[in-house]
């Protein structure tokens, strides 16, 4: 497993965020970036021939359990941000009739 390929996924995510034309596409891109970063971290904690860090397996020679604990938190945070962003996009749609970035940000303040 090559960390460089995962880093390419993260870069594709940032590219998608930069070129997204509507709000939903931006949220998809943030999801991709998040998953890529989590995969990178887990890969760094892993080594060949390591054991799964669950009590009941052989407790010597286990893989580093710290990244795994942190990444479960990160997954949950990522889903919270996604849910909040989508709720805000529904509100924006209800107000502006569209979710394209150019239309929504282009209006002057106070319509």
């Amino acid at each position: 497993m090559n960390p460089l390929l995962t880093f390419i996924v993260v870069l594709i995510g940032f590219y998608g965020l930069a070129t997204s034309k509507n709000i939903i596409k931006s949220v998809f891109s943030v999801t991709i970036i998040e998953s890529g970063i989590i995969l990178l971290f887990l890969n760094l904690g892993n080594f060949e021939g390591g054991g799964i860090p669950i009590v009941g397996e052989s407790l010597t020679n286990i893989v580093d359990p710290l990244p795994q604990a942190l990444m479960i938190t990160t997954i949950v945070i990522g889903s919270t941000v996604t849910a909040l962003a989508l709720m805000l996009s529904i509100k924006v749609f209800h107000h502006y009739g569209t979710v394209e970035w150019a239309e929504v940000l282009g209006r002057k303040d106070g319509e």
Binding site: I24, I38, G45, I52, Q68, M71, T82, L86
Partner: peptide, 25 residues
């Protein structure tokens, strides 16, 4: 990568809950 608990969390959230929220919105 020897992280089955993270995999369970990812499947529950990323394949079930997140597409549901997207479909609703």
């Amino acid at each position: 990568n020897n992280a089955p608990d993270v995999a369970i969390a990812e499947i529950a959230i990323g394949s079930a809950i997140i597409p549901l929220i997207y479909v609703i919105s």
